[in-house]
Computed example of a mutant assay.
Amino acid sequence: MRRRATAAIAALSLAGVTLAGCGSASAPSPPTGVDGLVIPTPDPAAADFVARVDNPWLPLAVGSRWSYADRVSGAPAFTLTVEPGPSVAGVATTTLVRTNADGSLVRDHFAQDRAGNVWWFGREGEWRAGADGAEAGLAMPAAPRFGDGFRTSSAPGRSEVATVAEVGAETRTPLATYRRTVRLEIEDAAGSRDETYARGVGLVRTDEAGLVAYDEAR
C-alpha cells in the first residue's frame, strides 16, 4: 500500500481535527489513524495486510453474530455475521454478511493492514477493488479521531465519505449502554446516515436500529 507523508483525505477540507471528545476544545490530536495513508488505495499489496480483522472498533472474528432491532417498533431489523472472504485484488478478505428482515443478503469484504486500519474491498455483486476502476476505501481507522474524514469506497458511479463526528459519547441500545464509542457520519449518493461503534463490540447503533444481541466468536 503506498503511503505519503501528509494525510491523504482527498477532496475533504476538515478543520475539526483540533477538537476531541464530545465537541469540547482540546489540544490538537497527535498523528494517528488516517495520517500518511493514500485513501482510497489504488495498489494494495498483500504483504501490507494481516489475516485477522481485530480492530477494536470493527472486530470481525469469523463466526461472530450481531442482531439489531428497529429503534421505534422493536421488530427485528437485520443481523450481521462474519465468514471467510475471497481474495480481492490479491488480498485475502473477511466477509461481513448482512441479513435483512426480508431475507435479502449483503456481503461486504474487508481486510486489515499491519497498522490496524480496516479497508473495504468491495460489495458482492456491486463492486470490487481492482476491477473496473474501483479502489479499496478506509472502513475504520486504527485510532479514529474527532474530525477525521476519509473515503470508504471509490468505484465508477459511487463514492462514499465518512467523518468521525463524535468520540466517547454515551450510546444506549436495547442490549447495553456504551461509553467508549465512535460515531461516523456517512454520506453517499442516497444521502447521509449515522453509525455508532463501541470498542470491543463493533456496530451498536444506526439511524434506524439498535443492537439487541452479540455473540462473539470463541
Rank of each mutant, 00 (worst) to 15 (best):
A20W: 06
F150R: 14
V106M: 08
D113W: 12
A45M: 08
T171L: 08
G116N: 09
P30I: 02
L12I: 12
M1P: 04
A165Q: 11
E208Y: 05
D48K: 13
M1H: 09
A92D: 14
L203H: 01
A213L: 05
V34H: 07
R151H: 10
S153V: 03
V62Y: 04
R107H: 11
P30S: 11
D215C: 02
A8Y: 12
S24H: 11
L184I: 02
F146A: 10
V82A: 07
R4S: 01
A51P: 00
G103N: 04
E124F: 07
L184R: 08
R172D: 13
R158T: 09
I39N: 12
A189H: 15
Y68N: 06
A47M: 05
A176R: 15
L19G: 04
V167P: 02
V167S: 04
A189R: 15
A10C: 07
A27D: 11
F110N: 09
L19R: 11
A129W: 07
A169I: 06
G125P: 09
L14F: 09
N117L: 02
A51V: 06
A7Q: 07
V201H: 02
A143P: 00
T173F: 03
A162W: 00
T163F: 14
R151E: 10
M1D: 08
T6G: 04
R71W: 02
A51Q: 07
A169Y: 09
A92E: 13
V106R: 12
A20T: 13
A139Q: 07
F78V: 03
R205T: 00
D113V: 08
A101E: 03
A176V: 04
F150A: 11
R114L: 05
V164C: 00
L175Y: 03
A10P: 07
A75D: 13
R4D: 02
W66R: 07
E83P: 00
V97I: 09
A176M: 10
V161C: 01
E124R: 11
F121A: 03
